[in-house]
């Protein structure tokens, strides 16, 4: 479980995060949504320790990040898997070397053990046989799956995905969403997904947090989305006529229909 308490961050005097508090539960896909510039990425990067917050605390299963020494922080980072928006695969390494990298850095496994684990995670993301290819030689969707495979190779306790569907077609996006959800359940991770993809929210949003102008505006789950009267959420989620019609339909049929 990750707990964020009263998080503030500003850049050049301009506040971006204004006292956000949230709890991200284990074994669930926790989603952070919001319009561009709402502070989602800064929020996630603050949790990851890539940005130093001005105020507030972040704790990983009770371990308060700011109270930890650098080696202790690095230890927590080995428990974290991250899928970046642009995948962040090392382009000079093959797919196998990319996935093997965290194991080479942080474990004492033999090469055959590492290869076995690489094949195991590649199988989990349905991507067998690409071991010797370079990231540039595979498609965007495949790269995303490789990034996921690298993120889970060390059995992470915390999984972060920054806009995992950006640049993907709707079908591949749903495959990636379901994969993230399956991996969250399988590894019992605390998964945090930063997105503004409505399909993802409706597909796997077990806990949703809406950010607006650096504030937390709403918190709930995917079925509550249809029955809330929060104007910011309605404005964000039901901005397209298709989703407005879906909302009307779901409301007509009642909560049990979703």
């Amino acid at each position: 479980m990750i707990e964020v308490n009263n998080l503030y961050k500003s850049f050049d005097g301009k506040p971006v995060l204004k006292g956000i508090s949230a709890v991200f539960e284990t074994g669930k896909t926790n989603m952070i949504i919001g319009r561009s510039g709402s502070g989602k990425t800064v929020f996630v990067k603050s949790i990851l320790g890539l940005i130093q917050p001005d105020k507030g605390t972040i704790s990983f299963d009770g371990r308060v990040w700011s109270n930890l020494s650098l080696p202790e922080q690095r230890k927590i980072r080995t428990e974290v898997g991250v899928v970046f928006q642009g995948n962040a695969l090392f382009d000079s390494m093959t797919i196998e070397e990319n996935i093997m990298f965290p194991m080479r850095m942080f474990t004492q496994k033999t090469k055959s053990e590492m290869k076995k684990r690489v094949n195991e995670v590649l199988e989990q993301v349905s991507l067998e046989g690409v071991n010797n290819k370079f990231p540039a030689e595979i498609s965007g969707g495949m790269q995303k799956r490789v990034a996921l495979a690298r993120a889970i190779v060390l059995y992470p306790k915390y999984l972060f995905c920054d806009e995992p569907n950006s640049g993907l077609d709707p079908k591949t996006a749903i495959i990636i969403d379901n994969l993230i959800h399956d991996l969250t359940v399988r590894y019992d991770t605390t998964t945090i997904i930063n997105t503004h993809d409505m399909n993802s929210i409706m597909e796997i949003g077990e806990k949703i947090i809406l950010l607006k102008d650096g504030h937390k505006q709403w918190e709930g789950n995917k079925s509550q989305v249809f029955f809330t009267d929060n104007p910011d959420l309605n404005d964000f989620v039901f901005s397209s006529s298709l989703f407005r019609k879906v909302k009307e339909l779901v409301q007509k049929e009642g909560k049990s229909s979703f």
Binding site: L48, L50, K75, V80, Q85, A88, D91, P102, M105
Partner: peptide
């Protein structure tokens, strides 16, 4: 391409 961020969040110096 966020590869350095990836190293940092993995716990690599």
């Amino acid at each position: 391409s966020e590869q350095i961020d990836a190293l940092d969040v993995m716990g690599v110096n």
